[in-house]
Design a protein around this nucleic acid. Structure first.
Lengths: 201, 201
DNA sequence: TCATTCTTGTGACAATTGTCATGGGAATCG
DNA sequence: CGATTCCCATGACAATTGTCACAAGAATGA
């Protein structure tokens, strides 16, 4: 029997996924969570073989949780289940020892089979996704550049970003200019779009 | 037996929702779709009592499909199932005679009960969502202002927006300035964020 | 018909944003 | 110990963006 922990913030989706898994005789859902910051403690208590994690979770994102989980409960392998195919996320996932990466757009039966494969120690990676991820590569942005872009993302002006990050407005503009250049964008809005689509944000 | 059509673009989610509904003895899923532009024809062929539609569908968005469906097959009532709670979408949904509006964040059992209520002619609306929708109201933007904001949304410069919409750059800036003012935003990025969150975009 | 709103445009001005050169301090890595 | 890369900052300049006043034609609706 494969013991599964599942973390997905939208209740109905989570319930539906659980219903899907209940149809499988060899799979048992031992924990359901709606946030990321309780994943490790719950896993330590319920000892799942596979953790199915959404990336976009409140509290702590799924990839950070996967990293902590790998350290504290190496016997539990992680399968990431995400909606958007942002290539940067796949690379980050591999770095934190995620064993499987599945899109919510994949055919429904693949969930159970991916869980079985991951449980048996194999990896589950869509070759097209891997190719796309390798092609786009990992982020060209420095930490600070990414910080500034994230702040700009919420519609703040240069001055406000400076306030929020304790930077001089001129420095903020420099970082944004760097980011715009590195991303091949035309302006900050364009840069935000590009970084977000790539999963670098 | 309640006949249900379900349209949701992410395959695994759709499959999971169907699995959830198969547990209900009085509900039968008669059609599964992954795009919006085939909803009406499929409904005319399969005669569902309830259409469960995601809003964000390729081909044709769920609300436009709901409108067409209401005209061509009035016996079929629509239940919208959406991820984000953009208040503007709820208002638009009511305008096109949608009978139920459910978030993917709602508890899983509510899907079946909402389907039963809608099938029996009742409405299913979360009071909190309705209140939020009434509070934010409908869009203050004119069609053109919304067009320009949408174009700006993809990171285009003023000149490019003008090219795309056949407007003088000065006119584009006027529209953006109007939109920024109406939305109480600080700049175009902020305006885009506000309009998007409200579901006005 | 008249008032109103929407669409489109101009020109001028102010404010913000993007670019570039330049510099110093901290950290990392051979 | 250098070399390199980040981080943070200035100042100056150019380009873009945001604001405002103003205007004319089209459409809508009372």
């Amino acid at each position: 029997m494969i013991r599964v922990l599942i973390a997905e913030d939208m209740h109905m989706i989570r319930g539906a996924l659980v219903a899907l898994l209940r149809l499988e005789p060899d799979i048992e859902v031992v924990a359901e969570l709606d946030r990321g910051d309780t994943i490790v403690e719950t896993a330590l208590r319920t000892k799942p073989n596979v953790a199915v994690l959404d990336i976009d979770l409140p509290g702590l994102d799924g990839l950070s949780a996967a990293e902590a989980l790998h350290e504290q409960l190496p016997s539990c392998h992680t399968l990431v289940l995400t909606g958007l195919s942002q290539p940067g996320n796949l690379l980050r996932a591999l770095k934190v020892h995620v064993r499987g990466f599945l899109l919510k757009d994949a055919p429904a039966p693949q969930l159970a089979s991916a869980i079985r494969l991951v449980a048996s120690g194999r990896r589950v990676l869509d070759p097209d996704l891997v190719a796309a991820a390798v092609e786009t590569g990992s982020t060209p942005l420095t930490d600070r550049e990414a910080d500034v872009l994230r702040a700009a993302h919420s519609g703040l002006s240069t001055a406000e970003i400076g306030d929020r990050l304790n930077l001089s407005p001129a420095t903020v503009r420099n970082y944004l200019s760097n980011a715009i250049g590195k991303l091949g964008a035309q302006n900050r809005l364009d840069a935000i779009r590009i970084a977000e689509d790539a999963g670098w944000l």
